[in-house]
Amino acid sequence: MEAVIKLEEAKVGIADWRVALAPERLVTLGLGSCVGIALYDPVSRWGGLAHIMLPDSRQFQDHGNRAKFADLAIPDMLAEMLRRGARRSRLVARIAGGAQMFTSVDRHLSFLNIGQRNTAMVRQTLEGLGIPIAGADTGGNFGRTMIFDLATGQVHIRTIGRPLKTI
């Protein structure tokens, strides 16, 4: 009988986060102006992946889904990782996304630049928590899928029409 080894792959949806242990993989599909944040403890090999939509919860009244906002999702996911046995001093972050997907001749889009603001807030939040950024693939005008391999801590970035990239 042929043995097929299939790695566990858990999907993280938009405005959601998830924590898992090696050898699982965490995947989030189609990041546009959203940002994906992978936190990893290389010793315990606990990892977490978040897919945030908006930078700052303080600009909104409705916080029904905390995972939507960079400033709430990252500390929430961190707390869950620490509960499971990750050590804060060992954590590193890898981030991707924050693109500007739409182009137009005349646009307030570039003025708002939500992708850039998401990335800036993610960096600021991580810095505030004392978590160093080990790799980043942000900006541009294309979508990204993050595949977070908890066995190695590496994050693979899949796009349309570009080679697979590892951060």
């Binding site: 189609g30 990041l31 546009g32 102006s33 997907m101 739409f102 137009s104 294309f142 349309i160």
Partner: peptide, 18 residues
């Protein structure tokens, strides 16, 4: 404004950008 890319990326950006 126009985009051609992954459904998830385009859809969420259509909600957020602008």
């Amino acid at each position: 404004a126009f985009a051609f890319d992954m459904l998830g990326a385009v859809l969420s950006a259509a909600f957020l950008e602008g």
